[in-house]
Simulated assay, not measured.
Amino acid sequence: MSEPVLELEGIEKVYLRGTDREVRVLDGASCRLGAGEIVGLVAPSGAGKSTLLHVAGLLDVADAGAVRIGGEDFAALPDRRRTIARRRDVGFVYQFHHLLPEFSALENVMLPQLANGATRAEARARAAALLDRVGLTARAAHRPAALSGGEQQRVAFCRALANAPRLLLADEPTGNLDPETSETVFAALVDLVRETGLTALIATHNLALAQRMSRVLRLEAGRLVAQEPG
């Protein structure tokens, strides 16, 4: 494997249920993702996929372990440093698109760039280029309510990639779509990731989609193990 873009080492995460019961969601989870890899993450509902992605993407803090992005350990850094790193290095896609309804598709993709210091002209040009890559040039001026579910999710993909992150994390990105639309949207995501050379970790319950990625990891009893093909 090439030098890892994402490295999780010995990640532990425990939640309290009630006043005294501990639930150990992550128990020494470790993995390494190289540049350009698209890795599937599978597990039953409630097994901790979202928790793992939130820790990997610096949205949550592990109780123990290292989170390295580009070789730098962000696990114990102050919130401000983690926020800067998250804006610079990580893109997120969720099951629900979370687009801002009052803005057009183009504007939704521009916003993260503007927040990161880009000029309006720079943000507009990159947003237009990303939307064109997923076949949405003709829909760029439409607000989310005028877009189909699949179109909304493709806009969300573009928004996640707007700041040219090194790492894309996706949590069931096609889970809210019908099977046919899911296929189309997943293909658009994979093509976009491959064209931009990103590293991606994509959680999905769809094993057929997962098997089309570079490799698949299974979250089992709080640890990550290789999913055997087939």
Rank of each mutant, 00 (worst) to 15 (best):
S50D: 12
N206Y: 06
L130E: 04
E72W: 04
E195Q: 15
L131D: 08
G150H: 08
E12Q: 12
G71T: 09
S148D: 05
T51F: 06
L167R: 12
R133T: 10
I202D: 07
L198P: 02
R24Q: 09
G28C: 11
A76W: 08
A156I: 06
F186H: 08
L189F: 14
G230Y: 09
A138N: 14
T51N: 12
M1S: 12
S182M: 04
E3S: 07
T119N: 04
A226T: 15
G36C: 06
F103L: 13
I69L: 05
E180L: 13
H142T: 05
L161T: 11
H97E: 10
L224D: 03
R17M: 14
L131Y: 00
E183V: 15
N176A: 15
V155I: 07
S214I: 13
L131I: 15
A64W: 11
L114A: 09
P44N: 09
A141N: 14
N116L: 06
R81D: 07
V185H: 01
A62L: 03
L224W: 10
M1D: 10
D132W: 00
V55W: 05
A115N: 12
D63P: 05
L111S: 08
G70E: 01
A64G: 10
R154T: 06
V185M: 02
N163C: 15
K49F: 05
G135K: 12
E122I: 00
A125N: 03
V55M: 14
V193N: 01
L114M: 07
L224F: 12
A156G: 06
A121E: 15
H54C: 06
V55F: 04
Q95G: 14
L201K: 06
M1K: 06
L177G: 11
R24N: 04
V190F: 08
G197C: 14
L168R: 05
K13F: 07
H97K: 03
L209Y: 01
A35H: 12
A56W: 10
L100S: 02
L147S: 02
A170L: 11
P173W: 09
D63Q: 01
A118Q: 13
G71R: 05
L8Y: 12
